[in-house]
């Protein structure tokens, strides 16, 4: 950081440009290969299938465990995506290239967060109707979608920071879930509780607290990740 280069453009415009360049690069690469997306999607569907056997999802159980099953699925599929998206950068030397670019490093962070979030949301958008059809539950409620968005933001915000670290270690393939899961416990907890509230049709005031917690978590951790990201990409 602080390379003191004279910027022709105003710094804010430059920053947004850099972020969108990273996002655009990821989306385009993914659009061509579709390997990340298809892996995440098939993996999610398999997890739902496994839960079906493991929990005997009959009508009664379904009501109470749906949000838990959904968030477990998103969490597992999410690590797959985060790991892969960062590993690609590392292997193809893209990360080094990005670091050489005369942009603020946090632009890389936000770029990666947005593209990771995009992948995760696309997967979720496909998993939700499939789950709705398979188990005859209407998951398309605006409130639930909002909770999923908030939860995914927190998850990806921390996950992007930690996956940037984990791909630079010797044990890169196995480390991310171990680092990530204990730290995102609050997100999963609050998200499950809030989703449950919407699915059971409770009064909003009864589960406003988890929603507030999700928002607070998102803000705190994205701010922290933004401040420390320099330290995990520095060479």
């Amino acid at each position: 950081m602080a390379n003191g280069q004279p910027n022709a453009q105003p710094p804010s415009g430059n920053f947004i440009k850099a972020v969108s360049a990273v996002v655009w690069k990821d989306l385009q690469a993914e659009f061509r290969s579709r390997e990340l997306f298809s892996a995440m999607l098939v993996f999610s569907l398999l997890i739902i299938l496994i839960f079906n056997f493991a929990l005997e999802l009959d009508v009664e159980t379904r009501r109470s465990v749906t949000s838990g099953v959904l968030w477990a699925t998103f969490a597992f599929a999410g690590t797959l995506g985060l790991n892969r998206s960062m590993a690609i950068e590392k292997d193809r030397g893209c990360l080094d290239g990005l670091l050489l670019a005369p942009v603020d490093r946090s632009a890389i962070y936000f770029g990666k967060v947005i593209s990771n979030l995009a992948f995760m949301l696309i997967v979720e958008i496909i998993v939700l109707p499939v789950y709705s059809v398979l188990y005859n539950i209407n998951l398309f409620q605006p409130g639930l979608l909002m909770v999923i968005l908030l939860g995914s933001i927190g998850y990806v915000g921390v996950g992007t920071l930690l996956s940037t670290m984990s791909v630079q270690t010797r044990t890169r393939d196995i480390l991310l879930p171990i680092l990530l899961f204990p730290v995102v416990v609050p997100v999963l907890l609050a998200a499950v509780k809030a989703s449950n509230g919407f699915l059971e049709g409770l009064e909003l005031s009864e589960f406003l607290l988890p929603i507030n917690l999700l928002i607070a978590y998102d803000i705190i951790f994205i701010a922290v990740a933004f401040m420390v990201f320099d330290n995990v990409v520095e060479e």
């Binding site: 920071l161 907890l189 922290v224 990740a225 995990v232």
Partner: peptide
């Protein structure tokens, strides 16, 4: 690098643990 990553993770973990506590306090 070990020190930098360790510090970042300890910071993230140290922030997350109390939030977990309040989350479960619900």
């Amino acid at each position: 690098r070990r020190a930098r990553f360790g510090a970042v993770y300890a910071l993230v973990g140290g922030l997350s643990a109390p939030i977990t506590f309040f989350a479960i306090r619900l």
